[in-house]
Computed example of a mutant assay.
Amino acid sequence: MAYTTLISAAELAANLHKSDWVIFDCRFSLADDTAGSKAYRQGHIPGARYADLNQQLSAPVQSYTGRHPLPNFAALSQQLGAWGVGNRSQVVVYDDAGGAFAGRLWWLLRTMGHQNVAVLDGGIQYWQKQNLPFTTVLPKITPSHFRCYLDQQQWLSAAEVENALAANSITLIDARTPERFQGLQEPIDPVSGHVPKAVNRPFQLNLDKQGLFLPAEQLKTQFQTLTHLRPPAQVVHMCGSGVTACHNLLAMEIAGLSGSKLYAGSWSEWIVNKNRPVAKA
């Protein structure tokens, strides 16, 4: 069986021994970019490699980009091969933030043509609550060859977003907290507010009190209400830097609403150009 959206802790535990499964620890903190790698070294799921949001899953920041530009896909393909990922591998990604960072690698792999990638439901916290294996031993990696089949239709540029909003041909969903969306507070970026015409759905709403994703039917109802039944292909997701937006995109895929897209640069790129409009409240 191939896993393409979510995998449960029990399902992953039952497949830990399989050589064609590759696990990634994607823990990260925007407040301390070394926290994730430190946490990994202190303990991780057996066999997991550490994928760093800044180092491997993003390109260097430029004056015209947002905070986490899309990576160089050729370099990432090479890195995936070095990590032991082949085109037939089942990949599992996890973090300690409900999938907020793991979703980035999930989306990147799918955009590179690799469908067999799933986010661990409940993340490392739920895994540990189930008393499942945990180790400090680094994995022994057999390098593989990963061939990228990049689909550049999976993300939009700022200009494409601006034009599509003007034509009313998309619904733009912002995954940030209401306080940031409304411009009431902005702890990260130099300008507060949101893209005019965007709607707000904090990614945390996709999870229940245990940190597990809501049932597919519940997610489907919520997203269809938010988008007024607009076709998923006309739905675009954003956030602060194109990372947590992937969580809403994943939630729509879980709900069977396949085909929504990412505004990869997101808010931190939008505000680089001072001519772009900003809305508040």
Results as ranks from 00 to 15, higher is better:
D208I: 06
L207N: 06
Q130E: 12
P133Q: 10
A97M: 12
P231V: 10
G256E: 07
W106G: 01
A281T: 09
P196W: 12
A35H: 03
A74Y: 06
E11D: 15
S260K: 06
V117N: 03
Y149G: 01
I254D: 04
L30C: 07
L57Y: 02
R180V: 14
P60H: 04
L105I: 06
R147I: 12
Q218P: 03
V272F: 05
Y126Q: 15
D189Y: 01
H247A: 04
Q152T: 13
Y263C: 11
W267Y: 07
I141V: 15
V119N: 00
R230P: 10
T227Y: 13
T65I: 02
S58E: 13
G211K: 00
P178C: 05
A251R: 03
W270H: 07
S89R: 01
E179D: 13
L70V: 08
R230T: 15
T4E: 08
G122T: 03
R41H: 13
L53R: 11
K274A: 15
P196T: 13
G98V: 05
P139H: 04
D25M: 01
A13K: 14
H17T: 11
M238Q: 13
R110T: 01
F28Y: 15
G43K: 02
G211N: 06
K274T: 15
F223Y: 15
E179I: 02
A14G: 05
P215A: 08
A48R: 05
L184Q: 14
H247P: 00
A59K: 09
S29E: 11
D189V: 04
R276D: 11
G99S: 08
D25L: 02
T136Y: 03
L172Q: 06
Q90L: 05
W83N: 04
A10W: 01
N248Q: 12
Y94A: 11
Y263V: 09
C246H: 02
L138E: 10
G123C: 02
L120A: 07
F181I: 13
E179N: 13
P69Q: 01
A279Q: 02
W106Y: 10
D95L: 01
P196A: 01
D95T: 01
C239R: 10
H247F: 07
G259P: 02
G81C: 11
Q222K: 08
Q55F: 02
K209L: 08
P139R: 03
P46W: 07
R88S: 14
G36V: 04
F28V: 03
P60L: 05
A281I: 00
Q218A: 09
S169Q: 14
F181C: 09
A97H: 13
R104N: 08
R276L: 14
A14K: 11
G123S: 03
